[in-house]
Design a protein around this nucleic acid. Structure first.
Lengths: 328, 328
DNA sequence: TAATAATTGTCAAACGATTGACAATTACAA
DNA sequence: TTGTAATTGTCAATCGTTTGACAATTATTA
């Protein structure tokens, strides 16, 4: 049985109230009793029961973190940074993998509320979650519009798409394709803005943009096949929706004997540390992952402890272009 | 303010006790009252306060998951599977990134205890944690000896090392190197067994094994440089400590004009889905990630709800060899 | 119709800590 | 020596839910 506050009090020869005061730094306490209490806590290896404390109204210091995947390196790096920074602020995270399953996400959301988390960071891609509307807890969203009263942090996707288009055109590519999940209706996801801006920029330059759709449910084998098909079209510039798709393009091109960058220019998206380290040859739009993690957390913590309404902005952080061998 | 049990009772026109009974499926309750209560809960969007329930002795349904990294794809995939399977069993996870920092790890451990988690899965690489000895909570360790009373789940690292050695020799490689973090003292980590078995197997075949040390603190640039140095030695077979190191070897070899597999055979280790999908050319020892996740969880849950002492075995699951272009 | 079973309620004590009110003791300065 | 401030204690209510004991009501069956 784990020791409780009363045990510490007995051990230290003081009242339970005093122990609680020591723990919470209340009132004026002599160094002597403080030290007695600390010693007793150490001796008994005492840890205050968070449940009891939180039940009384104290913060839980738990933050729910909901993302569609953990194994995707982009999310993995973002989550790692979020964890690191929250830990510094003495918060711990409950990790929720929505797996793009709205039932699972809803379930997790309910659980987070039941567990009285202090706040939630959401980076998931399911739209139909009405529930977010009525959560009266500090929430910050990553790259996605959840509800009117929830601030969004993202990179400047439109600028990223434009940058990719311009860069490909500057390198004399004319048959330009966007490869990835292609959206058709009006842009809903911030990420759709990449494709949109890419196409608009190309059109503005008097060229015709093309798209080549890969479904997110396609296996990698199928994606490779589809990309091989694409590479049999006249194409000399590709903007991939993400770096891993770009890798497939690179590899497929190589198999088909297509030279990069001579015959084909390629730009990816995300620019994780993993890609920068292990595929430095890939040109890519680098998202400011660390800045976004910082911002997500500072907005969230601000909301948590000041209770102030944060202006409901869509915070857009700038991307950078990493020029490498697939471009020049 | 979130509704509480008493609010539901009022709304449903029953006593708080009855509501609690409905929630916990106690006693005999008529369908009618049950439905009334459910309706009231739905109407008020009621969620029982987990803190209060757990304080009373109910499980928290929280599991602490401590790993040295989230962004490393191997851990990322393992964590994702653990999350997926725990979710199915109605458990949620508190994610702890030890970052190979024993202070941080100790801190997280204390916090997990304070939060009354039901169990802990530990996959971290710090040794000097005495604290694990005295935790009287169900714990399972991944790939690491923590304390005498804590079961370990791992892949058969020794068999993996042996497999790699034999495979390289079968393909007529004679100058064999282990590349990665090289241990010198007697093996402490299960992962050290890979290197040990690799070397022993080579020696047993009358050849001389070599090692080429890469520190975990080396940047990727430095690792590349060190690998380039290695490739200027006489070497025709390399066993990399992990797949990402293997990628660096592949890339460096290519830059130096060394042909794989003609001039150099290469085997990596881990075989994540990421590597299998995006680097299918790499031969590697594939760890049974999913099986390990299953086993970790079944042992942990067994311990949690049967309170039975699980036999303190080191569960070793078999690896498989993925032969690909870097071998033949 | 009586006896039995099922259903629901009331009440109160936990779970482990926090906190405010108030009292009592001690220490220190004037 | 007295007054004031600092220190510590006692006591009880509270956070939201669970649970056991017991009573009261209703329904079912013989």
């Amino acid at each position: 049985m784990r020791p409780k506050l009363a045990d510490v009090a007995r051990e230290a020869g003081v009242s339970p109230t005093t122990v609680s005061r020591v723990i919470n730094n209340k009132a004026h306490l002599s160094e002597k009793t403080k030290n007695n209490v600390y010693a007793a806590m150490r001796k008994l290896n005492y840890q205050p029961n968070s449940l009891a404390r939180s039940l009384h109204g104290k913060q839980t210091h738990l933050i729910g973190v909901i993302f569609p995947s953990v194994s995707n390196p982009f999310y993995a790096e973002l989550i790692e940074l979020i964890e690191k920074k929250l830990f510094k602020n003495n918060y711990k995270i409950i990790l929720c993998n929505s797996a793009n399953n709205s039932d699972k996400e809803r379930n997790y959301l309910r659980m987070l509320l039941a567990n009285q988390v202090d706040g939630i960071i959401v980076g998931t891609h399911n739209v139909d979650i009405k529930e977010y509307q009525q959560v009266e807890l500090p929430i910050v969203s990553f790259d996605r519009k959840l509800a009117d009263n929830i601030p969004i942090v993202s990179s400047d996707n439109a600028a990223g798409g434009k940058m990719a288009a311009e860069e490909l055109m500057n390198h004399n590519a004319h048959n330009l394709y966007f490869v990835g999940r292609v959206h058709h209706a009006s842009a809903v996801n911030p990420t759709d803005l990449r494709q949109q801006a890419f196409q608009d920029t190309i059109t503005a330059h008097g060229l015709t943009p093309h798209t080549w759709n890969l479904s997110t449910t396609d296996s990698v084998t199928i994606k490779r096949a589809k990309i091989a098909q694409l590479l049999h079209q006249p194409v000399d510039g590709i903007f991939a929706a993400d770096d891993f798709t770009a890798l497939l393009v690179m590899q497929t091109a190589k198999e088909l004997g297509i030279q990069l960058p001579e015959q084909l220019k390629l730009i990816g998206y995300d620019g994780t540390k993993l890609i920068q380290n292990y595929h430095p040859e890939l040109s890519t739009i680098v998202q400011p992952i660390e800045d976004m993690a910082d911002l997500l957390i500072s907005i969230l913590l601000e909301r948590i402890d000041s209770k102030s309404e944060v202006p409901l902005t869509n915070f857009k952080l700038p991307n950078t272009l990493l020029r490498s061998q697939t471009l020049e």
